[in-house]
Every structure is written in structure tokens, then in C-alpha cells.
Design a protein around this nucleic acid. Structure first.
Length: 265
DNA sequence: ATCTATTCCTGGCTGC
DNA sequence: TGCAGCCAGGAATAGA
């Protein structure tokens, strides 16, 4: 599942294929992925020039000379350059100079939306996890009475974390997912911010986590899954203390933790 | 403000 | 071998 590091790798790898190019022809498939009049959207996009490709949280923002495309990969979305169509192709962009960018999405939880201004879903996001100032993060954490894991998953609080990275960074910060956020000490919250930066940067450098079928814009898999310490390691020994890693459910999500290292306070 | 359950989707897995 | 049933989960939504 693409989270911040995976989306960052997609943006970096796909940008050279998009930047400065003109959309010669576009095509959309599933109404789940692209709501509204898909043929009309395709016509609107014809001739649009791509001026900027960036990321906020898990959203890919493609600025055009008029409006922008906001792309979310959901669970199984892929944005790949010069790839063949598949039965799961729900977005198809022919660019000038014969380049093609394909959006594939088996489960169709992703989305491709056009808007004139800022996409409302992007407007609702909190600060990006990679650029949120430590002070804001610490203060935000300590002012919320909710449990840590649901809060970190809340994109309005901080944008970019998903199930895998929340489990990974809570383990590394030695915090229990059910711990009440406001009860974290100021140094503990600052430490969590630092861990978040390190884990995300480390994963970006490793090309992200390829758990099921994640690939970047050039079809490359990441290797950060080999560096996961708790996610997907149920029953295996904790890499710090040797106790078996436990899988529970928190906020309807599979949650991995070491009950020895992560004590609830 | 916070929490829980439900909905979308389908490949892959489990169990009979 | 075949197939029904369940699971994974990001985000929106309804309801408590």
C-alpha cells in the first residue's frame, strides 16, 4: 500500500515523464476512480501542459496550465510510465513525444480528480509528515486526547502516514498504539517526530515498501519491507528484545507491536 | 471531540 | 480439485 515514501518515489520517478509535456489524449475507466463525466474530463485535458508534479501526504498533485489533477493511489494504484494497458487500467495519458503514463488500480480505491483550484480533499489535509515543524507536531500531539495510532493515521492531523509506517515508527519510538496522545511527555513527542523523519527518509532512500504489488513510476520495487521491524512479523522475535511480535486490531486496522518494548502508559 | 461500524473493490488465501 | 467465504485496508460517511 502506497504511503508517503512510496508516493514520494512515484513522484520522483514519474515527474521526468510528465514535466513540461502536453497531454495529447487522456482516457478514464472506472467511475469509482474518476467520478463524474469521464469523457468530458478527457476532452478538457487534451492540450493541457503539465507544469509541476508534487506530493502532499499521499496525494500526487499534477499542476496543469489550467487546473490540476489530484491523484491518490489508494491501496493498489500504480502510476507507471510507458507501461502496457492491463485489465486494471483506469487512467491512460498519451503525452507528446510518444510517452505514455498509465494508471492501474486493481481494487479501485484510488482516485484521479480534476479541479480548477485546490482539491478539497487536499485542502483538508494536515501538514505533510516530512515537513511538519517539530514544535507544531509536539504541540498537536500533546493537545489531543485520542489514541496515538488513530491520530497518526488521521490525515487531517499529519498527512502521509498509513498503517505500515505508523506501526513501524511507534515501535521505533517505543510507544504503544493505544497510548493517549496528550499523555506523552514533551521529549517523548519530540523523539517521535525525529523517528518519523528518520523512518520516512530511510524508506524513501530504499525505494519504499513493496508489500503486495507497489512499484514506482518506472516499475521498480522498493526494499524497505526488508527493514520492517514489526509490520508483517507477527510471532517472530522482536529485533530488540526477542519477545514475539503481536498482531492486534486497533481502529479496525491490523496492528503490529512488541508488548515488551511498547508499554502503554 | 472522539469513536465505531460500514461502504467501496478484488486477488489471494483458508477451510471444507 | 473446486469453490464459498473471508481478509487486506485508505478514506468518506453515518450514527452514537
Amino acid at each position: 500500500m502506497p504511503e508517503l515514501p512510496e508516493v514520494e518515489n512515484v513522484v520522483r520517478s514519474i515527474a521526468p515523464y510528465l514535466l513540461g509535456r502536453t497531454i495529447a489524449r487522456a482516457e478514464f475507466g472506472s467511475p469509482w476512480v474518476t467520478p463524474g463525466d469521464r469523457d468530458l474530463l478527457a476532452r478538457q485535458l487534451q492540450g493541457r501542459r503539465i507544469e509541476r508534479v508534487r506530493r502532499h501526504g499521499k496525494f500526487i498533485l499534477v499542476d496543469l496550465d489550467r487546473g490540476n489533477l489530484t491523484i491518490h493511489l489508494g491501496m493498489t494504484g500504480k502510476l507507471v510510465a510507458n507501461a502496457p494497458r492491463t485489465p486494471y487500467t483506469h487512467g491512460y495519458f498519451e503525452l507528446d513525444a510518444d510517452a505514455v503514463v498509465v494508471y492501474d488500480d486493481i481494487r479501485q480505491f484510488g482516485s484521479i480528480e480534476w479541479s480548477e483550484g485546490v482539491n478539497p480533499r487536499v485542502a483538508a489535509l494536515g501538514p505533510d509528515a516530512l515537513t511538519v515543524p517539530p514544535g507544531d507536531f509536539v504541540q498537536g500531539l500533546r493537545s489531543r486526547k485520542t489514541k496515538l495510532k488513530p491520530l497518526l493515521l488521521n490525515q487531517a492531523f499529519v498527512a502521509g502516514l498509513g498503517n505500515i509506517y505508523v506501526d513501524e515508527l511507534l515501535f521505533r519510538a517505543k510507544l504503544h498504539p493505544l497510548q493517549i496522545a496528550s499523555r506523552i511527555s514533551a521529549p517523548g513527542a519530540a523523539e517521535l517526530h525525529g523517528v518519523m523523519q528518520r523512518v520516512l527518509q530511510e524508506s524513501i532512500a530504499a525505494g519504499g515498501s513493496s508489500i503486495s504489488d507497489y512499484v514506482d513510476g518506472e516499475g521498480r520495487k522498493g526494499s524497505f519491507q526488508d527493514l520492517h521491524r514489526v509490520y508483517g512479523r507477527e510471532g517472530k522475535p522482536c529485533l530488540d528484545c526477542g519477545a514475539p511480535v503481536v498482531r492486534t486490531v486497533v481502529a479496525q486496522r491490523g496492528t503490529h507491536l512488541c508488548p515488551q518494548c511498547q508499554k502503554r502508559r
